[in-house]
Amino acid sequence: MISLWRIVRFELGASYAFIERNLHLVRRYMGWELVWFAYSLASALSITYIGAAMDRISGAKVNTDYLILYLLIGTLVWRFLSVIFDNISEMIQWERWEGTIEYTLMAPIHRFTHMLGQTAFAILHGLLLSAGIAGAVVLLFDVSLAGANVAGALFMLLAGGLSFIGLGIMASVLPLLFPERGAQMTHMVQALLLLFSGVYYPIDVLPGWMQVIARVSPATYVLQGIREAILQGTPTVVLWPRFVVLAVTGVGLMGVGVLVFNRAEQYAKRTGRLKRSG
């Protein structure tokens, strides 16, 4: 009789395979990792400087400290969420490129185990990259977090991360089904989330139909919650209902993501889309 603990140990060990493999890949592609960090940092600084220059651009008296923090929250949260989304949605694309996809899908592990490992790495990667950017930005701007509810903001960030894991798993189906165009499709999904979710502006500046879409994007609520926690110092007790809704939505999206992936995998196996020759 195989004990439940032995099965759990096997599945957790298999999950760690993905974390360790990705850490090895990051080390081997360190040059590319540094390029990506420099690009992300330059992008974050460019956006934050818009806030710093707003009184000169508009000619009006603007609270630039508030604007800098507003934009900084947007750029850091977006970087964190998009790293999670990228890591998960690109897992199939990368394995297709290396030719290892069949070996990974042939391994005796559940797809949930596969996703768990990839997801844990994505969160770790996203946190490290975002922390690095935040550290560099703080050196250049006089950012004050006095009165901010940092712990509440972090809770909101992690709850929002769950939704992006679910969305990333769903997006990873695209390279599975469309080997040549799937990767570009995931970028389109990401660009639309950036547009509709109020990353750098309140969503009420958007046209009415865009606001409808914004209200179904989890990123909208993550950003609103974090801005309330940091800019207005809203206590965690007040943020709690929003946190619960985000966490439940995130867990639901992860479940749907795994279901969608399993269906897509079966479809790919029926139609020979994993790979076929001879």
Binding site: G13, A14, Y16, A17, E20, R21, H24, L25, R28, Y29, E98, G99, T100, E102, Y103, T104, M106, A107, P108, I109
Partner: peptide
Amino acid sequence: RVSVEAAFFKKLSPVENLMYGARLY
């Protein structure tokens, strides 16, 4: 299974690739 093309993460070493395979099993 061993296929006609040796499918590995090309930047990783034999030990790193085999460790990945070992953990999956």
